[in-house]
Design a protein around this nucleic acid. Sequence first.
DNA 1: AGCCAGGACTAAT
DNA 2: ATTAGTCATGGC
Length: 309
Amino acid sequence: MSPTTVQFWPVADYDLAATLECGQAFRWVRSGAGWESVVGDRWVRVEPAPGGLRASWMGDESGAGGLCRHLAADEALGPILASFPDDAPLRAAVARCRGLRLLRQDPWECLASFICSSTKQIVQIRQIVALLAEGWGAEVEAPEGAVLRRAFPTPEVLASAGERALRDCKLGFRAPYLLDAARRLGDGRLDLGALNGLDTPAARAALMEIHGVGRKIADCVLLFAYGRQDAFPIDVWVRRALSRLYFPRARRLTAARLEAFSQSHFGPWSGYAQQYLFHYMRLEAGRGELSGGPADPAQGLEALPGAGA
DNA sequence: AGCCAGGACTAAT
DNA sequence: ATTAGTCATGGC
C-alpha cells in the first residue's frame, strides 16, 4: 500500500525543518528527505521539492486544501518578515531560520499537547504525545512501513481514560490537567469552535479556566491553532531572548514589563516574531541539537547581537 | 549528582 | 500584588 495522492505546491521561503522541528508541533518525524505525520485523520508525508513542497497522503484529493492551509503553504512569508522591526536580534533570527512558518493546528490537539508541555523538554513532549496516540488514537490508513498510524485521541476517549493510565504515559502531575480539559470539552463547558468569535483576551480567559492552563499555554494555543498574532507566548527561552537581546543591562525584568514590550515592539506579526526568536535562541544555544537542548543554556550567547548593536 | 525542561497551582506574605 | 514550595519525569 502506498500513498494514493501526490501533490506539488509552489511556494517560496518554506523551511520544512524549521517549521516542523521548532517546537510548535510534536507529531512530525523525519522520513528520508521529508517528514511524516498524521494530520486530522489522514496519514501525510511532506518533502521539499524544487520551487515548493511535495506532499503525499492516503485517500483522494479532497484533503489537499486543508493540508495546504495546515502547513501555511498558501501564505506569502515575505510581507510577514518585512513587517518585523528592523533590529539586530530579528535580523539575526531571520537570517538563521528564514522559511519557518506557523502551522494552523487543530485546536484540541494543540491544547492537549501544550497541557503536556509544562516543564518538559520538547523531546519528552513528543514522547508523551506519541504514547497518547498509541494508547487512544484511532487507526488511520497508512502505507507500508509508516511510523505514525494513529490519529490524535479525541477529547471524548481521553475523558474516559483513567488518571492512572494517563500517568503511565509520563504525564505526571499533568494527567489531571489533561482530564479536566477533555471533560470540559465533553460536557460543553468549553467550546473550542466558539473561541473564533471572541477577541484574544476573552478567548485566552476561556482557555485559562482549564486547570493547568496558564497564560503561556493559552497563548501557545491562541497562536498555533487560532493564528492570533497578538498572542506572544513567553517561556524560559523567549524570556531569555528578550532579556539578553533587548534588555541586556536590566537586572530584574517583571513579567508585566516583558509582556508590555512584546505587545508594543514586534508589530502586526508579533506571534511570528516570537517563534523566530524562540527557534533562533534554541539553535544557537543548542548548536543545532534541537531535541535535547543545551547542557548549559547560558553558554554561547555572548556572540548574539543585541538590539543596540 | 545535580540541574534543567515551551508552567501552573497553592499558600503565605 | 509578588514570592516560595510543590508537583513527575527524564536527558544531560
